[in-house]
Design a binder for these strands. Structure first.
Lengths: 208, 208
DNA sequence: GAATGTGAAGGTTTTCACAGCA
DNA sequence: TGCTGTGAAAACCTTCACATTC
């Protein structure tokens, strides 16, 4: 299969969300045009995106909401569950543990790590906080497939290196740093600073 | 000026971060090649990006670190400060208030709104929490330029409509919904669910 | 000699436009 | 008739390559 672009995946996420809503409203069929409108894309875009994965629609009619939703779920890997570990239980880490979307998407937080002695050994919303010193060993033992980095920027690269060393190949990063990972590791960063800079640019260049 | 692409703005953010580091290390000059290497871009890309805004380098030498940093800051609007309001002080909102990067980028949280009577009227890290009922009036009175939406998804569109109604044209959204805004409003969403779906896709399609 | 700044070339993504099917 | 699925065209973004400048 041809390599699928990042933007296509992002849009699939959005289609998925729209389809969830439609399903709740008992809509059974939707056209590329309507699906496009609710996300400000073009109908052709929607059809192209979907066409990379097969043909799910009926000519003259549109797409079956529930089937398409399931199909996208399977493309995005939302049917499976993944073993996740969180490193760092500060403000961000803490918010993440209570973030329901996580579970809903099949990301199960199995382990939490921190370096703060006051936190280690205690329970955090039902999950025991382990010493970050045992990271490597425990990641392997618990078959962790993804790690969330929510430590201060200054520590982030060190943690990433250990995580990669333990064989984890998918990382979600919340630190504001340029992290280096080998080719075969997927790293996505939720870079608030960058979002802010986009907004700042928009604000500064707004037509009045 | 030709419209600047989103990706160029994202990269400027990253260059900016690199330049900050270099300045701390007392490096005075940097070539497009070095700037590229530290972010996994190409030298040509760096030069193109910068060329949209002027010519800041010296042929045969490179770019002056401190000047280039300031120049990018001014492009991204980081020299100015913006009046910001936060709507919703749950897990996310709360984490945002303590997020230092915010202030550093010139986003000053002037107002916090919530609909929870237990929170209204109380102080939250030095900022008084107001009733979301007074949103429209208070946004105008305080000359708020940007609003952060950190309310449950079900409420988000309602809040956005009010915010837009009050004349705010820049919104940072943390709710997991497709929000609708008029053409002239800049909306950026920090969509965790989307990030997760990218990772989920990566995990599901990882070559073993 | 070394590195910028930039047209032109090369890629990738998006949109167009229409054949094909319900 | 109405809407999908898809090659082809257009738009957009990235890289190349070199003239230009220090």
């Amino acid at each position: 299969m041809r390599r699928i672009s990042e933007s296509t995946i992002s849009r699939l996420s959005l289609y998925y969300r729209t389809l969830e809503t439609l399903q709740r409203e008992n809509v059974t069929t939707i056209s590329s045009g309507e699906l496009a409108r609710s996300n400000k894309f073009t109908p052709a875009q929607v059809r192209k995106d979907l066409s990379f994965f097969g043909s799910f629609g009926t000519r003259g009619l549109g797409y079956p909401v529930s089937e398409l939703k399931d199909k996208i779920a399977s493309i995005l890997g939302l049917c499976k569950t993944w073993n996740v570990a969180l490193v760092g239980v500060g403000n961000v880490g803490s918010a993440l543990v209570s973030y329901k979307e996580f579970q809903r998407q099949g990301f199960i937080i199995k382990k939490i790590f921190d370096n703060d002695l006051r936190k280690i050994g205690k329970n955090h919303k039902g999950i025991l906080v382990s010493d970050v010193k045992n990271l490597n060993m425990e990641l392997k033992e618990n078959k962790i497939e993804m790690v969330i980095i929510a430590v201060p920027s200054s520590e982030a690269q060190k943690v990433v290196d250990e995580v990669v060393g333990a064989g984890v190949r998918t990382i979600l990063n919340f630190a504001t740093t340029n992290l280096k990972v080998p080719e075969n590791v997927v790293l996505r960063s939720v870079n608030m600073a960058m979002e802010l800079e986009h907004l700042s640019y928009a604000l500064a260049n707004q037509k009045r």
